[in-house]
């Protein structure tokens, strides 16, 4: 496998983790977020700075990034508790701009120069090769899928679903809104922090520009494109929308045009997403399996 394919695969892998993490907040708990890239960035900066300023090894930087992003997610989640829907969308967008501005204008975070020379993680005494890095990313995807699957089957997951459906009815059924919204924000943010750490040590250079509002929209598009609120939707969305720009490389000038058209066509005909609940694909896959079982 050429280095190019591996690089694309690692990038898509990081997007898969991001999409899964946003799906917890927006898909399961129903809390729209237009600022998810902020948490991706916080994870990347936490990990990258711990590695470059204190020389900490990657396997310490990564858990550090997860914890820091989770804590920041809880703090930034607090203003989000009192707003809903359109207002929440604006609030999360604002958070994205603020976080990005802090990275850009506070000298401590490297300003416009960002953080460079983030070391490649070493494993067994030697620097990790790209294929090894890909294996590690896949390993973390599996962990993210496991956490996601566990959440869906737990009382906490059911509580999040009830909040998504009707907040008033949920709290009258014994669900503490504050507690479970914070759970969703912390879990989703921490997982985005994990993706950020993987990104920082893969790119070795990060700057505020990588974590702006457009990046948040890309992540949200992946979730919605694949099928919001499902386990497979964000994964498939991240793969397709991650591969698409690479496939359309020959028609460079029209890349964003095709990309945008894909989104528009899908939303027109399959608003629930490619493998969303009751989408064309889901229905047919179910039918085929039902036939085989019979």
């Amino acid at each position: 496998m050429s280095a190019y394919y591996i690089t694309v695969a690692i990038t898509i892998g990081i997007y898969i983790i991001l999409a899964i993490s946003l799906n917890i907040i927006t898909g399961y708990a129903g809390q729209i977020s237009l600022g998810h890239a902020a948490f991706f960035g916080i994870g990347a900066y936490a990990s990258g700075m711990l590695a470059t300023k204190l020389g900490a090894p990657f396997f310490l930087c990564l858990p550090f990034a997860v914890v820091v992003t989770g804590i920041v997610g809880a703090i930034l989640g607090i203003p989000c508790l009192r707003v809903k829907e359109d207002f929440l969308a604006i609030t999360t967008m604002g958070i994205n701009f603020v976080v990005q501005a802090v990275f850009l204008y506070v000298p401590f975070f490297g300003g416009a120069l960002g953080i460079s020379n983030i070391p490649v993680p070493s494993f067994g005494g030697a620097e990790m090769t790209k294929p090894m890095y890909l294996v590690m990313v896949i390993f973390f995807i599996l962990i993210a899928v496991a956490v996601d699957g566990w959440l869906r089957r737990s009382w906490a997951g059911l509580a999040l679903a009830s909040i998504r459906e009707d907040e008033t009815a949920a709290e009258m059924s014994g669900v503490n809104l504050t507690r479970f919204k914070v759970v969703a924000f912390v879990l989703g943010s921490a997982m985005a922090g994990l993706a950020g750490s993987l990104y920082a040590h893969f790119m070795s250079f990060i700057s505020a520009a990588d974590f702006g509002f457009p990046e948040s929209i890309v992540i949200l598009s992946m979730v919605v494109f694949g099928g919001i609120g499902t386990l497979w939707g964000p994964i498939i969305g991240a793969i397709i929308l991650g591969v698409a720009p690479e496939l359309f490389r020959p028609i460079l000038d029209y890349r964003t045009l095709v990309y945008g058209a894909m989104l528009v066509v899908l939303m027109r005909f399959q608003p629930q997403g490619l493998v969303g609940i009751d989408s064309f694909i889901t229905r047919n896959v179910k039918r085929i399996f039902a036939k085989e079982a019979a």
């Binding site: 906490a156 059911l158 509580a159 998504r164 459906e165 949920a170 014994g174």
Partner: peptide
Amino acid sequence: RPFAGLTVEENVLVALGVSHY
């Protein structure tokens, strides 16, 4: 205000979980 997108069974399960939250 039932939980519109949840099944009838899940609607009841949400409240059955009251001691689990």
